[in-house]
Amino acid sequence: MSWEIARPSRALALRGFDMAGFRIHGGGSESLRAIPHPAVTVLLEFGDSRFDIDDPAGRVRAGSLALGLIRDPVPLRVEALECVQVRMSPLAASAVLGMPVSELGGTLVGLDELWGRDAARLCERLHETPCWQQRFALIEATLAARLHDRHPADPEVAWAWRRIVGSRGRYRVEELAAEVGWSRQRLWSRFGAQVGLTPKRAAKLVRFDHAVHRLVQGQAPALVAADTGYADQSHLHRDIREFTGAPPASAAAEPFLTVDDRAWPSAGG
Rank of each mutant, 00 (worst) to 15 (best):
Ser2His: 05
Trp3Gln: 00
Glu4Gly: 10
Ile5Cys: 00
Ile5Tyr: 08
Ala6Lys: 05
Arg7Asp: 01
Pro8Gln: 04
Ser9Lys: 03
Ala13Ile: 02
Arg15Val: 13
Ile24Tyr: 02
Gly28Cys: 10
Gly28Glu: 07
Ser29Phe: 08
Glu30Asn: 00
Ser31Ile: 02
Ala34Gly: 01
Ile35Met: 07
Pro36Glu: 04
Pro38Glu: 10
Val40Asn: 08
Thr41Met: 10
Leu44Phe: 10
Asp48Gly: 06
Ser49Pro: 03
Ser49Thr: 09
Phe51Tyr: 14
Phe51Met: 06
Asp52Lys: 11
Ala57Thr: 12
Gly58Lys: 08
Arg59Ala: 13
Val60Cys: 08
Arg61Gln: 14
Leu67Val: 15
Arg71Gln: 15
Asp72Asn: 14
Val74Lys: 05
Pro75Arg: 09
Val78Trp: 09
Val84His: 03
Val84Leu: 11
Gln85Gly: 05
Val86Arg: 00
Arg87Ser: 01
Pro90Ser: 08
Leu91Trp: 00
Leu91Asn: 08
Ser94Ile: 00
Ala95Glu: 13
Ala95Lys: 04
Ala95Tyr: 09
Val96Leu: 04
Met99Gln: 14
Pro100Glu: 08
Pro100Met: 13
Ser102Lys: 05
Ser102Pro: 09
Glu103Ile: 10
Gly105Cys: 07
Gly105Thr: 05
Gly105Phe: 09
Gly105Gln: 14
Gly106Thr: 10
Thr107Asp: 14
Thr107Leu: 13
Asp112Cys: 11
Trp115Ala: 01
Trp115Pro: 09
Arg117Glu: 15
Ala119Gln: 11
Cys123Glu: 04
Glu128His: 13
Trp132Ala: 15
Gln134Ala: 15
Phe136Asp: 04
Phe136Lys: 14
Ile139Thr: 05
Ala141Tyr: 01
Leu143Tyr: 02
Leu143Lys: 02
Ala144Trp: 01
Ala145Trp: 05
His148Ser: 05
Asp149Thr: 06
Arg150Asn: 10
Pro152Ala: 01
Glu156Asn: 09
Val157Trp: 08
Val157Gln: 03
Val165Gly: 12
Ser167Lys: 08
Ser167Val: 06
Arg168Gly: 08
Arg168Trp: 11
Arg168Gln: 15
Gly169Trp: 02
Val173Gln: 08
Glu174Val: 04
Glu175Lys: 12
Leu176Cys: 06
Leu176Met: 10
Ala177Glu: 01
Gly181Ile: 02
Trp182Arg: 03
Trp182Val: 01
Arg186Trp: 00
Trp188Met: 11
Ser189Asp: 02
Ser189Ile: 02
Ser189His: 07
Val195Phe: 07
Val195Ile: 15
Val195Ala: 11
Leu197Val: 09
Leu197Glu: 06
Pro199Thr: 07
Ala202Thr: 13
Ala202Glu: 13
Val216Leu: 13
Gln217Gly: 15
Gln219Tyr: 14
Pro221Glu: 12
Ala225Trp: 06
Ala226Met: 10
Thr228Glu: 08
Thr228His: 06
Asp232Pro: 09
His235Ser: 05
His237Ala: 09
Arg238Phe: 03
Ile240Phe: 05
Arg241Phe: 07
Glu242Asp: 14
Ala246Thr: 03
Ser250Arg: 15
Ala251His: 02
Pro255Asp: 06
Pro255Phe: 02
Pro255Leu: 01
Leu257Asn: 13
Thr258Glu: 13
Thr258Phe: 01
Asp260Tyr: 05
Asp260Ser: 13
Asp261Cys: 11
Arg262Val: 15
Arg262Gly: 07
Trp264Phe: 15
